[in-house]
Design a protein around this nucleic acid. Structure first.
Lengths: 231, 231
DNA sequence: CCAAAAGTGTTGCGTATACACCCATGT
DNA sequence: ACATGGGTGTATACGCAACACTTTTGG
């Protein structure tokens, strides 16, 4: 927690904040975490969880701390989205913000409203409410970076459960890229890449014999896949 | 110029700086602009041109201003590389830096040493001296982003002269990606893509008839190329 | 006369696209 | 029985990698 006091400097300094864009996937929708602001400015507006940088922490550490304080979430991977420094972006005065994206597994969806934020909930990324400050700009940048992450790394598997089905995975890709994929080509592509391992069906499920095949992410297969690309 | 005075805040604030990684290409080498620091800390060390964010400007504007003040360069396109906020990155105290990359045409290589910086010059990107602060970390990130830019956009043509030859262009790609390209495949790839237009040889050059063919960037051809990728 | 630089063409392989069929479940 | 959702296979096209030859200039 920041301590109120008096800080004097020889030169002007901006206030520095961090903001968190947290994505999750529930098997159908790509969701984004928002908190309802409890104080002015933009009181009662939805915004990304965030707050002010403190003296003893890096920007990423600040992002992790604010997210934990406001929502209880502690994702592993944070990616810097960019800085936002428009002169009038914060009515309280000159503030620059550094935004981070992270992903939360669907089974971690248990948002705890903290002190600062009155309320917190997931919104489908295609049905976002109006946002405070310049957070819509931040969100567009975050979506862009998420696509980049999907293209260049195994980010998709951070959003999926440990065990997932190909139709689930395809729904995720459809939402992230905003377009349809051919089901057969999609499956062929990932099955032949070796980055998926099939999971044995439970014997319990004999009654449900024709349920979708379940897979898990294959770390070793992914490593080979990457090395092949780099050669 | 920043004015010295007294600034008092209720909460702690970090100092915020910007740093510029400027690339240029002289037909043979990919070069990076460095200034020799005239003051402590790291006096006489080489560093990227940069300085403190001021009240009336965005981060990108600050980067443009500092670059102009220290070197006289005014590139068109700036791309944010990332933020650097390690606790001990600046011995003067807690400072966070936002780094930008830009490109300068070879014919603009005319560095004017300004007030703050004692000296400024281009270094081949493969023969960089030791750098001040955490600028080596910044440089690695800039190289990475430059590669991304080459892959996903027409950044290469910002580094080349208006009129260039394919061997020049290939040398540039070789340095940016750090690997060799097959000359024939390289040429075929770009000639068939439609993003290059041949430039008529000067009649003056009849004596030099077998000089490399000169090309220019074809904006319209690039647009078509992009649309084709997105479909 | 030989070496170095620059232009051009062919082939094969791999990946992505387009497209059709079968099976099981639930109504 | 029909609609829905899910698994599998095949043909084609395009891009990329591998590779050889010719010409000109300069030493």
């Amino acid at each position: 927690m920041s301590e109120k006091g008096t800080y004097t400097y020889s030169y002007w300094r901006p206030a520095v904040t961090v903001d968190n864009v947290v994505f999750s996937f529930d098997g159908t929708n790509l969701n984004v975490l928002l908190v309802r602001r409890g104080v002015e400015p933009y009181k009662d507006c939805w915004a990304f969880p965030g707050g002010f940088l403190e003296e003893h922490e890096t920007l990423e550490e600040a992002a992790r701390r604010e997210l934990r304080e406001e929502t209880g979430l502690t994702p592993k991977h944070f990616i810097e989205i960019g800085t936002f420094s428009d002169l009038n972006r914060d009515p309280r005065g000159r503030t620059i913000s550094v935004a981070f994206a992270s992903v939360s597994r669907p089974n971690q969806i248990s948002v705890v409203a903290g002190d600062d934020a009155g309320d917190a909930r997931w919104f489908p990324s295609i049905q976002m409410p109006a946002l405070a400050f310049d957070h819509e700009k931040i969100f567009r940048m975050a979506q862009w970076k998420l696509r980049i992450g999907f293209t260049s790394g195994p980010v998709a598997f951070l959003l999926l459960n440990d065990i997932f089905t190909l139709p689930e995975m395809q729904r995720l890709y459809t939402q992230v890229y905003g377009r349809e994929f051919d089901r057969r080509n999609f499956q062929k592509k990932f099955l032949s890449s070796g980055i998926l391992s099939a999971v044995a069906q439970d014997d319990m499920d004999t009654k449900n014999a024709h349920a979708p095949i379940r897979y898990r992410f294959n770390e070793a297969g992914y490593t080979q896949f990457k090395e092949k690309l780099l050669k």
